[in-house]
């Protein structure tokens, strides 16, 4: 039974994904990469959730777990009540139809030897559509992304980055998904093309009542499109809440630092002596003890070095994982 608008559609509680590194034949200390660690997150039907984080934050690994591309190490993800790691045989087809994905590098994610028509029709054919049914659906999808049908005969190398991304979106839409996972959907695009794709994604989301999880490092994109936003750092969820609340009143010092680091969008807003987050994002192999952000945090105390703060409710619908959250 599909969830109604506003009902939870993606749910995870205490989700972890660890990778084991082999550290040599005779070495006994097995190193573990804690790419996603104890993440609890609920996404509701019909909303757009933005997931932001720097490199190594685990945001793409989380997406791969949600997509069932890699099994979780602890706990699991439920999409529409289906355990994505162990779907029952009867649910597998529904899961694959309901959840679609669009990746960052548009030309790299299309088969270079297939026309746009072939790329979009392939998932339909794999799910049992006849050739003519598939073609009809491809034409409908092209209309919904407002792209001329003449591009159906083009190969990826004949298309621009923005056109390739439209084709990738069309392919994702082919099976009429309910949920789209968008991993850096506009990061490789120029500003004018990014605007086209963001507008298109918003139009599709409204007209088809889709649920989006948008993964990006670009806070401007998150501010523009998302209803709620989650901030990850070194595998852990640091803050989650309504986008406007998080941006206007960040509760976690890391979120505050990220916002301060964001370049201004007008030279008149330049600040002298901007606060800068010191140091580099750490390594997932040698994680800091306690709160993972404490080596870079201006508010850190001894407690932060030993205690790992859980995600706690700070304000209405707003959670943060910090011992000393900001007011």
């Amino acid at each position: 039974m599909p969830a109604a608008v506003g009902e939870p559609v993606i749910e995870m509680s205490g989700l972890s994904k660890h990778f084991r590194l082999s550290s040599g034949l005779f070495s006994s200390n097995k190193q573990v990469v804690r790419a996603v660690d104890d993440v609890s997150l609920t996404i509701n039907r019909g909303e757009i959730v933005g997931l932001v984080g720097e490199s190594g934050s685990g945001k793409t690994t989380l997406a791969r777990v949600i997509l069932g591309l890699t099994p979780p190490s602890a706990s699991t993800v439920y999409v529409d009540g289906i355990d994505v790691a162990h779907p029952a045989a009867k649910d597998r087809d529904r899961l694959h139809r309901e959840v679609a994905v669009v990746f960052q590098d548009p030309p790299g994610n299309l088969n270079p030897r297939q026309t746009a028509l072939g790329s979009i029709a392939r998932p339909l054919r794999l799910h049992g559509a006849s050739r003519s049914q598939a073609y009809q659906r491809v034409r409908d999808v092209m209309a919904s992304i407002r792209m001329d049908e003449r591009y159906l005969q083009s190969y990826p190398h004949q298309l621009s980055g923005g056109q390739c991304q439209r084709i990738a979106i069309a392919r994702a839409l082919a099976l009429e998904p309910k949920i789209m996972i968008l991993d850096e959907p506009t990061s490789a695009l120029d500003i004018s093309v990014q605007a086209q794709i963001l507008n298109l994604l918003l139009d599709l989301q409204e007209s088809l009542s889709l649920t989006y999880l948008i993964i990006t490092h670009d806070l401007n994109v998150v501010r523009y499109v998302s209803d709620r936003m989650a901030v990850m750092y070194l595998g852990r969820l640091m803050e989650f809440g309504p986008t406007r609340d998080v941006l206007q009143k960040p509760r976690h010092p890391y979120t505050q630092g990220l916002l301060a680091a964001l370049p201004v969008m007008n030279p008149k807003d330049r600040a002298r002596d901007k606060p800068v987050i010191p140091g580099d994002p750490g390594s997932l192999i040698q994680l800091p003890t306690g709160c993972r952000y404490h080596p870079r945090c201006p508010r850190a105390t001894e407690r932060c070095k030993s205690e790992t703060p859980p995600l706690a409710v700070i304000a209405r619908n707003h959670t943060a994982a910090c011992i000393y959250p900001l007011d």
Binding site: G162, S192, A195, L198, L202, N220, V225, R244
Partner: peptide
């Protein structure tokens, strides 16, 4: 002018972004 209005500065509540048809 169009580029400046294509930059996502606000939220979607403030309306759609300006776009420029085609590409460079």
């Amino acid at each position: 002018r169009l580029l400046m209005r294509a930059l996502p500065r606000a939220s979607k509540a403030e309306g759609r972004l300006e776009t420029i048809d085609g590409s460079v």
